[in-house]
Write a protein that binds this DNA or RNA. Sequence first.
DNA 1: CGCACAATTCAACACATGATGAAAAACGTC
DNA 2: GACGTTTTTCATCATGTGTTGAATTGTGCG
Lengths: 197, 197
Amino acid sequence: MTARASRGRRPGAPDTRAEVLAAARASFAEKGFRGTTIRAVAASAGVDPALVHHYFGTKDDLFVAALQIPVDPREVLAPVVAAGPDGAGERLLRTFLGVWDDPEVQPALVALVRSIMSDDTGALVRDAFIPVVIGPALASLVADRPEARVPLVVSQVVGLIVTRYVVAIPPMVAMPAEEVVARIGPVLQHYLTDDLP
Amino acid sequence: MTARASRGRRPGAPDTRAEVLAAARASFAEKGFRGTTIRAVAASAGVDPALVHHYFGTKDDLFVAALQIPVDPREVLAPVVAAGPDGAGERLLRTFLGVWDDPEVQPALVALVRSIMSDDTGALVRDAFIPVVIGPALASLVADRPEARVPLVVSQVVGLIVTRYVVAIPPMVAMPAEEVVARIGPVLQHYLTDDLP
DNA sequence: CGCACAATTCAACACATGATGAAAAACGTC
DNA sequence: GACGTTTTTCATCATGTGTTGAATTGTGCG
């Protein structure tokens, strides 16, 4: 019930901009792009809608601002790739969970995935992200025929993302990271290096 | 450029209702619930928006009408479950693909999944569908500790759904059903019956 | 203190959308 | 052929949304 009514600047030095950005991230993560309204973000930050426009311009701009996260997939994957194919499945999964379980970046990543799957931004993943970023990284880890193995790895990882972070089915959320690594890691390893039927 | 202008009933006996329903299914599958507008559905069916309301009432009603599909998961899963745990992974996957690759039901299923992941209908899957429908069916196929195994199976199957039908990444779409069965089936079997680490 | 500047709200516009009710045209039946 | 019924469009409304510009209040600097 923090009744905020008066016009003009607030006393003190509150970082209102950061609050708005956090509210936007949370809303984009939970409701997706279309489901998020500027008014709702403003209300959740205890602020007038016009202020959102003042800081971040249009709604699209707000969205890309909310997706700004300090994680470059190629950089994160580099050490995993450098260590070679032995035990790559578990290493891959461990670093992956290290990023996704970080509460600092999780909302932005979930928002990104939600938008990819609800709106037709799917093309971005389909045509650019996987072939350009993920594909080459995994390609040096697979035994052979990467065009057949990479999609399998991706499918299991995507399933993990959706069940653990997007839909958040309870047993998957409750599972400790190391347990996920121990149970799914071998499957990734299997997709990467075992003989294909 | 089929200029349709005149008022009143059309000559002939066109099944306009079915066309509207098909357009709605396609739009819900591609753009999700929020992304679908009554006007767009009407335009895609070459019809006035009011007609959509005339046949199916509100937008929610149209959505549930679009989701009406002649497939009961328990009924489909019954024979798979009845045959016991031996080779259950591949059988499960085969019948699963039989349903999802059917172009008659695919749009409705994709629409359902899209809505589950974009809007917060996720609760439906999280709290009802998996525990009540999928859980008990799989429970009789697993070796032990179903609460640990079922989520693993679900994660791989969800990953398959998303990559093959929702985001539709090309290598996954192009893969023949039997190849999917041969490559992912053993992994499901592993989750169902192999020793858990 | 005075003043430029930043932060914040208010009021309003333009637009798209879901929904409604009445009117017009074809059909089926007697 | 007359008539009730179904199918279809038109015109319209209320609402929520993104966006804009002006007005107001606090902060920091000279």
